[in-house]
């Protein structure tokens, strides 16, 4: 397993005194990691023996042909697969060093800390403003008039505020697909996640909206760690720091995005990134 790539900005290299004052000094450098993770539904094994690390503040792209197990992998990271009948896992997933299945972990808290953006926009049947604060409300993070502040802050953050500020009480379903996806992003960001999982977040969007979402995602690190499943190789290359290539239920290669695309170590990776497969 090669060293995952990330920003090497540890304060210890700069000043040892400063390093000791850093409140995050004991915080693991990896936001999310898996250890020999194997996943199966009933008798069907969909993913075998995946060990990976996603360093805090980086963007990791998950690429591979359909059915390679990358979406299942992603949905395991916030325990969305837990309730699927027959789902079983071997190995472990850790969030800042602690197992997400640990006895002291609360499922709802895991999901607050590990947010998710889906393939297609999925606004809730409530007003635009209520959509943004739905999670905030559920987790009791803010209430009353604070909710309006949260809504405005998050809508500004995703660049949607000017477009929707006059129709906050209206249905989200009249927004364009790209705007709906940005709304869902604002909703996911509002609960203050540490990791954001994105399952082909732009596959239903036009190029212009895709560009807007991508630019936005790039501004979110280093506070946030992103793990993105994408079929768009250009997107993986533009967006990510490191890339994981899944094939036939295995993690074939994981490395610096530039390396994976220009000098892949594995033959399958080379075929896939050069468009000869998938």
């Amino acid at each position: 397993m090669q060293e995952p790539v990330g920003t090497k900005t540890t304060t210890s290299a700069v000043d040892p005194v400063l390093a000791r004052l850093d409140p995050d000094r004991d915080r693991p450098a990896d936001a999310m990691a898996t250890e020999a993770l194997s996943l199966s539904f009933g008798a069907t094994r969909v993913l075998s023996d995946v060990t990976m690390r996603a360093r805090q503040g980086t963007i990791t792209a998950l690429i591979g042909p359909t059915g390679s197990g990358k979406s299942t992998f992603l949905r395991t990271l916030n325990r969305m697969n837990d309730k699927v009948p027959g789902f079983a896992h071997v190995g472990d997933v850790t969030l800042y060093g602690e197992s997400i299945w640990g006895p002291r972990q609360d499922l709802l808290t895991i999901r607050r800390r590990v947010g998710m953006l889906f393939q297609r926009p999925n606004p809730f049947p409530m007003s635009i403003r209520d959509n943004v604060v739905a999670g905030v409300r559920a987790h009791g993070i803010a209430r009353g008039e604070q909710l309006d502040v949260v809504a405005e802050t998050r809508l500004r953050e995703v660049g949607l505020w000017d477009a929707v500020k006059d129709r906050l009480k209206e249905s989200p379903y009249r927004l364009s697909g790209g705007q709906q996806q940005l709304l869902c992003l604002a909703r996911a960001l509002a609960v203050g996640p540490e990791v954001l999982l994105l399952d082909e977040p732009t596959s239903a969007l036009d190029p212009l909206s895709t560009d807007a979402v991508e630019r936005l995602l790039r501004t979110m690190t280093p506070a946030l760690t992103l793990i993105v499943v994408t079929h768009n190789l250009g997107q993986a290359r533009r967006l990510s720091d490191s890339t994981m290539f899944f094939f036939n239920g295995r993690l074939v290669e994981h490395g610096d995005t530039e390396q994976v695309f220009s000098e892949p170590r594995e033959a399958d990776t080379a075929r896939y990134v050069n468009g000869l497969m998938g």
Binding site: L108, I110, M116, F118, R120, N122, M126, A138
Partner: peptide, 19 residues
Amino acid sequence: LPKEGAEALGLTDAEVARR
């Protein structure tokens, strides 16, 4: 999809039903 979205946001089953 919207139900999963609500679950992924950390809403309880009852909240998913209600919201």
